[in-house]
Design a protein around this nucleic acid. Structure first.
Length: 176
DNA sequence: AGCAAGATCGGT
DNA sequence: CCGATCTTGCTG
């Protein structure tokens, strides 16, 4: 959704924290994407936390691989991956180096579902490794919104085992 | 080299 | 519930 308000870009400081802080903190923040000459603004409505090698639902649960390599690096980088032969998933790296955590962006205003929003916004593998604090085509702004954040279980991780399935690491606002 | 599974989605 | 569609990572 278009948004003309002035926002403050989030830097690596925001992302260099535990994902259980960053994931709820992103609800109500604004995803900004370059679109030709202009910019598009989308309020983030739903996120999920993936928290290190011990988290059996996290891509890092089986150690470092070419795909998840970026998760082991600096916070505030974009982690995108291709799934089910047709969808790109948009994630941001959180926490300090060698602590492989990421936030999955599951919903933005106007688009519910992680595969649908990347398709709508033309986000693909070319965004892998993009730095949210310096990129000129993708970043996050704080525009002062303070939504009520609700939480629930993560979606689509039935393979992870009960204790990880039961974690309430999905965060969302009523705005959907 | 082969293969099973997948942080999804839309149609039955 | 099921198929689409193809990358990834594990096995051998």
């Amino acid at each position: 959704m278009k948004n003309m308000r002035k926002g403050i870009r989030l830097t690596s400081e925001f992302f260099n924290r535990d994902v259980l802080k960053v994931a709820p903190g992103l609800i109500g923040k604004v995803l900004v994407l370059k679109n030709g000459e202009g910019l598009n603004y989308f309020s983030i409505t739903e996120t999920e936390a993936y928290r290190g090698e011990s988290d059996k639902a996290c891509h890092a649960s089986r150690g470092r691989t070419p795909r998840n390599n970026i998760m082991y690096g600096k916070a505030g980088k974009v982690y995108v991956y291709f799934i089910y032969g047709m969808y790109w998933m948009l994630n941001f790296v959180t926490a300090e180096e060698n602590n492989p955590q990421a936030v999955l962006i599951r919903g933005i205003e106007g688009y519910c579902g992680p595969g649908k929003l990347t398709k709508a916004l033309n986000i693909d593998g070319s965004f892998y490794g993009e730095d949210l604090s310096t990129s000129d085509r993708i970043w996050i702004e704080d525009q002062g919104n303070k939504p009520v954040v609700k939480r629930g279980k993560r979606v689509g991780i039935g393979y992870a085992g009960k204790i990880w399935i039961d974690k309430q690491w999905r965060y969302f606002s009523e705005l959907k």
